[in-house]
């Protein structure tokens, strides 16, 4: 679409043989408008990425950081990382954290969207209240869950004890077996409204007439959901899932507030591990390498998203 517009606009005048003509200038004029955006992206995104890449192939540590003459080490930093059991642990923790969060917050978000798509009194107010979880600063929701899951005074334990599911205090975030679960639950709580709002918008875009026609044809509620809602929601669901994936994979603050990556390294996801390497241990080279791997993963997801959404559009 965009291409055809430029072609009709300048098409007749652009002739390679005519050298720099008026048309060519006009064409260049178009690029002129792009320059500020390009410069902005280059300065704020590409340059840091380049610097990060450069750092990741050098030995940058507390002694060489300021001196500037960083020894080139090729892919050594990456090799050290891949061989490091702590890094591999962080990767698997990240995958569990992301997978667990996405699955539940998408399912619950979808269920809530289906609920809110029907008009009922108080719908708007309830929806707004649900959004609160999304709007709260992460430090607040992190602290909220940190104390809710506390073993001595936590409301979760109090509730479980009241209904007889638990007889003695359980330290959810202290116990290495449940700490990750605790952070996942908190992240699900934060993420549900985001999923719900986007999915709700998608649901509202499905013409009501389709459902009417299906009802006339005798489709029951489940059939309408299976054969109408699900296929029509595919593109939206895909976007929500991929955005959620990227967002969840780089969660840092929530976990930092709740457990700081502990106990031991039970909740140390990749972003926490990367932060530690660079800003606590001053292993800037390795930190940069870890950041690059994180970036490659995220860019991979983004490309998958673009590819899938383009295929959706064509289909």
């Amino acid at each position: 679409m965009a291409r055809s517009l430029t072609q009709t606009g300048t098409g007749p005048l652009v002739r390679p043989s005519r050298g720099i003509g008026l048309g060519r200038l006009r064409g260049l004029g178009g690029y002129l408008y792009v320059i500020p955006a390009l410069a902005y992206i280059a300065l704020t995104m590409l340059y840091p990425v380049y610097e990060n890449l450069r750092m990741s192939v050098h030995d940058v540590n507390v002694r060489t950081f300021l001196a500037g003459d960083w020894p080139f080490v090729g892919l050594d930093n990456y090799r050290t990382l891949v061989d490091d059991p702590v890094f591999r642990k962080a990767l698997s923790v990240s995958l569990i954290f992301t997978g667990g969060s996405l699955l539940v917050q998408f399912t619950l978000g979808f269920a809530l969207a289906l609920f809110f798509v029907r008009p009922f009194p108080g719908n708007g107010l309830l929806r707004a209240l649900l959004l609160l979880a999304w709007m709260l600063p992460t430090v607040v929701s992190g602290s909220l869950f940190r104390w809710s899951l506390d073993g001595d005074y936590g409301i979760v334990n109090a509730g479980l004890e009241a209904v007889g599911l638990l007889d003695s205090g359980r330290f959810w975030l202290i116990d290495p077996d449940t700490a990750l679960l605790g952070t996942i639950i908190a992240n699900i709580w934060v993420g549900i409204p985001f999923n719900m709002v986007l999915l709700l918008a998608g649901l509202q875009n499905i013409p009501a007439t389709l459902y009417e026609a299906a009802s006339v044809d005798g489709a029951n509620a489940w059939q309408r959901f299976r054969s109408l809602t699900l296929p029509l929601m595919r593109p939206v669901a895909l976007s929500v899932l991929l955005l959620g994936l990227i967002y969840t994979f780089k969660v840092f603050d929530l976990i930092y507030v709740m457990t700081g990556g502990g106990p031991v390294d039970a909740t140390s996801v990749l972003p926490i591990y990367t932060y530690q390497l660079s800003f606590e241990f001053f292993r800037f080279g390795q930190g940069a390498a870890a950041a690059t791997l994180l970036l490659i993963g995220l860019v991979g997801f983004a490309i998958a998203y673009l590819w899938l959404s383009r295929r959706e559009e064509i289909a």
């Binding site: 502990g262 106990p263 031991v264 390294d265 606590e280």
Partner: peptide, 18 residues
């Protein structure tokens, strides 16, 4: 800082029973 991190992990592993 890295030494301290190793000590923190030892404390946490032992006290949590890991």
């Amino acid at each position: 800082p890295e030494i301290s991190n190793a000590i923190q992990e030892a404390i946490q592993a032992a006290v949590s029973g890991q």
